[in-house]
Design a protein around this nucleic acid. Sequence first.
DNA 1: CAGTTGGGATTACAACCGTTCACTGACTTC
DNA 2: GAAGTCAGTGAACGGTTGTAATCCCAACTG
Lengths: 205, 205
Amino acid sequence: MSHTLGVRQAQKQKTRQALLDAALGLLEDQSLSSLGLREVTRAVGVAPTAFYRHFCSTAELGVALVEEALGSLHETITTMLTTTGSNEERLGQTVELIARLVRTHPSHVRFIARERHGGVQQVRDAIGGQLARFTEEVAEGLAADPVSAGWSRDDLRMLAWHYVEHMVMTASVFLETPPERMDAAIDLATRQLRLVNLGRAHWLD
Amino acid sequence: MSHTLGVRQAQKQKTRQALLDAALGLLEDQSLSSLGLREVTRAVGVAPTAFYRHFCSTAELGVALVEEALGSLHETITTMLTTTGSNEERLGQTVELIARLVRTHPSHVRFIARERHGGVQQVRDAIGGQLARFTEEVAEGLAADPVSAGWSRDDLRMLAWHYVEHMVMTASVFLETPPERMDAAIDLATRQLRLVNLGRAHWLD
DNA sequence: CAGTTGGGATTACAACCGTTCACTGACTTC
DNA sequence: GAAGTCAGTGAACGGTTGTAATCCCAACTG
């Protein structure tokens, strides 16, 4: 399937990736709506006009970044869903996975948290759409769990959405937490998740 | 206490407020880090240099907006805390209060949601600090509730933080919800709150 | 190997930006 | 009522922005 690309295409994708990486770096202390095209090309060391060979606007670049960033988040979620063990074990592993995601892809997490409600509608919609798909996926995973017997489809989606939202929130909190306070932050997130799990266990009472 | 201000001071505060209002309007479809000072003064109909009489940068204007926006949110929270009734009643009233807040101050809600993780650190910190104070306040309110007997101080803060976070999240969801889907959104938020309340009821098991 | 393609460089432009400085004139103070 | 204060003005500055037109040359195609 994946045919070897010509030298030309390879080079193009290389600079395209360089643009994405540079943009992600610049977005650590500003938001997308203030990111200039010249700024990005300057960081890569390429002429301003070269930008147009890959994206027609910074908004489009933002959408591309969404796909990249939510890719790593998607991985994390699928890992969570396939994890087995007791409820309390899975809980700790889930939080640990979030912490690992923040450690390995901090700029992805920052980008998502920042642009989820950011100033560029195209990007907001892209993130919202992807998160909705994740929710559906999590809901399916939850449905497979015997704990969910008797749950309505709608209630499962409600729970899944709560999980996804809590995950993004937790990740952005971890991002701003200095290493020495990380233990406390992990503990807090774990207890919050335990709280929700408790509510889940008694939902059908 | 509140001495009648001179004509001069009154005029100054009037244009200051005009700047804040104009900025809030412009921030509906962009983020603070891309908001230009000229843009704001142009919207007010005032010379660019007049901006400096009130703020030394757009970041400082952002911090002022935080205080204004979180003022209305604070009102909502105190109303919530003083509401009485059964748990299920208070739950519905809480969600209704959030919906009302979004209806009456949509741009405030949008501003908070957008800049909470936005590109201007000064503003992020201001919002984070205020939300932390709200959390403390809510925790105190929760402690007064007989349901919280036996809860540790730390667990109460955890719960309070979860409530506050969920409130901001819910408000920003309501903001993007078209009127015809509002009922479903309110129902969803209510069930999520019920889920957490259920977890709360069984926390000490 | 001749011809075409297309990623990137160069140059140029008009529009806009934040900031400075000196200035005006209505309000305040004594 | 004279002197002083200060919110807002207007012009000018150096710098940056997005974008268009044109060119270059290495990589493709037949």
